[in-house]
Amino acid sequence: MSDSAITTVSAGWATVAAGLLGLLAIAAAMLDGVLRTRAAGARSLGLSVPVGEVARLLRQRRRTTVAADRLLWRIGGAGLLVMALMIITVVPLDRWTLVDLDVGVVWFNAMDVLAWAFVWLTGWGANSAHSLVGGYRFLAHGLGYELPLMFALVAPAVAASSLNVGAVAAAQDDLWFVVWMPVAFLAYCLGAVAIAVWGPFSPALGADIAGGVTAELSGVDRLLFVGGRYAVLAAGAAFAVPMFLGGGAGPLLPGWAWVLVKTAAVLGVFVWLRRRLPAVRPDLFMEFGWVVLLPAVLVQDLIVAVIAVGSG
């Protein structure tokens, strides 16, 4: 529980952190490419799918729409990437962190809420019915996943009696939080997948509405949005490590390597789940979120609080 174990590194290391996030995002895109190629039954491995897609988008001409709200559209499209970078500022790489914020858990929460703004703004800005429908689908999902996500983050914070991410990681020396608060972990994972508009939460980008939020995105704008989704997915996976998976704890390897291995593992599962889970309909999920998920997470919080009070 010693906060002094965390060293705040100088601001220059932010580029390294951003690079690591970029590598994780690229790895996720490659894994998705492999899975997509395999699902299509093609002979090639598919590792180069993201490379080809990036090259294509960089050369593509920008599509314009009539009376687009360009300012808000661009802010929304670039926002997800910024959001992912802001999230990882408080995620410690074992002993090192960029910002040792005393309310890091709330910081993550504030940043993940930005997805509401950015995804909706991307849908709004194009002045296109399909993309606006996509934006509202995301908000409908948001009304279902956000509160369970918030209360899922409460559980580790209560158990560690700290909102500092490093302190939460340090509090799991003997037992990882994922073991005795599995419901909170699952709700967190659901939220982390949702803020990346990924997998079951992709109806906002659905083919039935011509790509939804991304319907009118082209060229660099689409690259930023799609890349931002991978980055947010990677950041969500990285934040799960100090919150639920014991931070840098593990045998043989040094702590920073364990953080990266665990992050990559969680990220891999997130990417893999994309083709394993059905899309959840926004209208149906809303009730599920409030009637099933939220009470389940609240009961989890209660159990954790009782244990924390009992053992403290």
Binding site: V103, L114, Y136
Partner: peptide, 24 residues
Amino acid sequence: QNYIGVVTILMMVMEMAVMAVYMV
């Protein structure tokens, strides 16, 4: 006031997104 500052940002961004829902 770290906690209050971050919570202000959190609540207000969410509030504006919810306002977009009410708008429709």
